[in-house]
Simulated assay, not measured.
Amino acid sequence: MRLTRRDALAALAAGGSGALAGCSALTESDVWSEGTEDHPVGDHEMATLVAIAEVVYPSAVDGVASFVRTYTGGRVDGDGAYATGVAEAVDALDEYTATFHDERYVALSSADRRETLDYMSVDEAEADPDGAAEQRVRYYLVNELLFAFYRSPTGAGMAGLENPPGYAGGTTSYREAPDR
């Protein structure tokens, strides 16, 4: 299945955080420069988010990079505190990765990326934006990416949730079984 820009916009809209404002101008070709104080999410942070998504999303999904860039661009645009949290979580993940691999997270193979998240215990950590490194990685990176995926029509469909909350389906959606 292929994730699209429409999926990313639907996930942003379903989030209800007002993150969709100004998002219609976002495209896959948007240029993310080096992070700055005003815009701490740059190319490296985006590449890290894509690398994480490639590990935590189902292998049958295509279009991950475009989806993550569009979704994250909409989320960080105008939300400085959230953007700072994402950048700090990426830094924490890179620090942890450098301890074992002497490289940043994005430079690792897919198997090493998965292993790094496992060893960091991200899957067991309680998501906390102000917590320890693994809790912040879970909150800002992993949970946010999974939220975006399962809030999108494509991701929800893969999970058997053809009409997830926030995605209109009308009265027939709960009266009739989905076509399989």
Rank of each mutant, 00 (worst) to 15 (best):
A11V: 01
D123P: 00
A47R: 11
A98Q: 14
A21H: 13
A14V: 04
Y105R: 04
T99Q: 15
H39K: 09
V106S: 14
G18K: 07
E45C: 06
D91T: 12
R5C: 08
D43E: 15
F147V: 00
E176G: 00
G15A: 05
D118Y: 13
V41H: 03
S59L: 13
T36L: 05
L3I: 01
R151T: 09
A125I: 03
A65E: 14
Y167N: 08
A21S: 14
Y82P: 00
D94L: 06
G74A: 02
R113S: 03
T154G: 01
R104I: 13
S66V: 11
E28G: 11
D179W: 10
Y71F: 13
G85W: 05
R75H: 09
R69D: 05
V90T: 05
R69F: 03
A156C: 08
Y96S: 07
S152T: 04
M46I: 15
A125L: 01
Y57E: 04
S110M: 11
P178A: 04
D118H: 12
N143D: 15
T4P: 06
A92H: 07
D38A: 13
D94V: 04
R138E: 06
Y150D: 04
W32Y: 15
A13T: 10
R104L: 13
R175Q: 15
D62E: 15
S152D: 06
A156S: 11
A14N: 08
E115Q: 13
M120H: 03
P153V: 04
Y105F: 15
D7F: 02
R113G: 06
Y96Q: 08
D77C: 12
Y139H: 09
R75F: 10
V55T: 12
D7N: 06
P129M: 02
G170M: 01
V61R: 07
E34K: 13
R175P: 06
T172S: 15
A8Q: 03
T70S: 07
E144V: 02
